[in-house]
Write a protein that binds this DNA or RNA. Structure first.
Lengths: 227, 227
DNA sequence: TATACTTCGTGTAGAAATAACAATAACTAC
DNA sequence: GTAGTTATTGTTATTTCTACACGAAGTATA
């Protein structure tokens, strides 16, 4: 690694693909700042400062541009095509994040030109952001099969039907109810609560919560979880 | 993404973790340039130029520093801890690569201060490079289970025993011979050749080669391969 | 040319995981 | 109390996985 380097440096940014789930759809958080060419919608993100880590930059930009804070994020991929931004050379480190829309009300969103879009009804984004979203979607689909990250999309207390719907929306196929419940419970990662859902016009379903403690134990042993 | 940005920019480098396999071990390609603090061994890598893609930069640095060219590489992870290089802020995009040591003779290596190290007998590396190697090893172990990338580590023509040894070295556990062979053949990704290995002091094993054509077809359909 | 040595190549049976399938129970709304 | 909606639960056939051992093929050498 040569340290005496005097050439111009590529710019370095972070961009965040935030997935949210509501009763209907898997959604994506986009912003429309004044700075993007053609005022296109784009992913929240911005330049990395000299004194902050990549993840810190991603969280900072996310709060600044959308008001969304304290969510699960994870690094996705780094995009560095020379012409990905027509104005100048910029390399971007992308992150993806998961939120449950019911508990995380994105209050600041509207006023700041941020909005949720259904994932299969998205505008053309600025730069290569559509490509980043595709990579993020593929990663989510792949990862959800062997790591229980999907819980980040649900409220703390959820029903097995909600859990199943979540998987069905991410994987884009329907799952057998009885088999799904057997497998989900067999992971040992669900804690059955003494509560049922409220205000439904039919038999109320039992509520469960994710067992983080057991998860961390199993994860440390390198165990896999599949659904 | 704010475009009017006048703060100092982090440096941007690439680093490559190259795995090689010989009869004995899984090995790693390291360099000892004059520029690293304490003249420690480090991963081949260097600054990204303004007019080249990340992968191009990784390949260029790899050739320059080790003479190794035209190998399989894939992006791994981007490391951006603020203090990962004590001299200045540098973010590095890491790649991992796979070569078969028998066919790829690294001629230029010795003269350029490059050498192969057995993966479980490595020196302390410069910067956070030991951490990068750990992430690369974990990725390789994870990935080899559901994508047939391991073939990059073998010569074009190989025996089933060689294939099995390769998996055993990567996964660090022994596999059952009969079950392994059944599964490997069942993937449909092996082409049986009309040749056997040469110059062995015992019954010679049949040679196979990897069926890239079939692989690409199956990969396009999103099929998984497990061993 | 026989004998020792090494690796190659192969099948089966029990266990476990997976996939397909529907009827009754609980509760709400009217 | 009746209609409507969703919750909850078990069995069986199929597939996949795991454990396990021996004769065949070829080389080396006495």
């Amino acid at each position: 690694m040569s340290h005496t380097y005097h050439y111009p440096r590529p710019g370095l940014t972070v961009d965040v693909v935030v997935f949210g789930l509501d009763e209907d759809d898997l959604k994506l958080l986009l912003v429309r700042g004044g700075e993007t060419p053609q005022r296109r919608w784009s992913l929240p993100g911005g330049f990395v400062r000299i004194d902050e880590s990549l993840e810190a930059a991603a969280r900072r930009e996310l709060v600044d541009e959308t008001g969304v804070s304290d969510i699960f994020i994870e690094q996705l991929y780094t995009f560095g095509r020379v012409d990905r931004d027509s104005r100048e050379r910029v390399v971007t480190v992308s992150y993806y994040g998961l939120v449950n829309l019911s508990e995380h009300t994105v209050t600041a969103a509207e006023s700041k030109d941020a909005a949720w879009f259904a994932i299969d009804d998205m505008p053309t984004l600025a730069f290569d952001h559509n490509e980043i979203v595709e990579v993020a979607t593929a990663r989510l689909r792949g990862k959800v099969r062997y790591q229980p990250i999907g819980f980040e999309l649900l409220p703390q207390k959820f029903t097995l039907t909600q859990l199943q719907r979540m998987y069905e929306k991410i994987l884009e196929r329907s799952l057998d109810k009885r088999n799904f419940r057997k497998k989900a419970l067999a992971t040992g990662l669900l804690i059955e609560l003494d509560e049922v859902e409220q205000d439904v016009a039919h038999r109320a379903a039992r509520l469960y919560r994710f067992d983080e403690r057991t998860y961390r134990q199993l994860a440390a042993e390198g165990t896999y979880f599949e659904v």
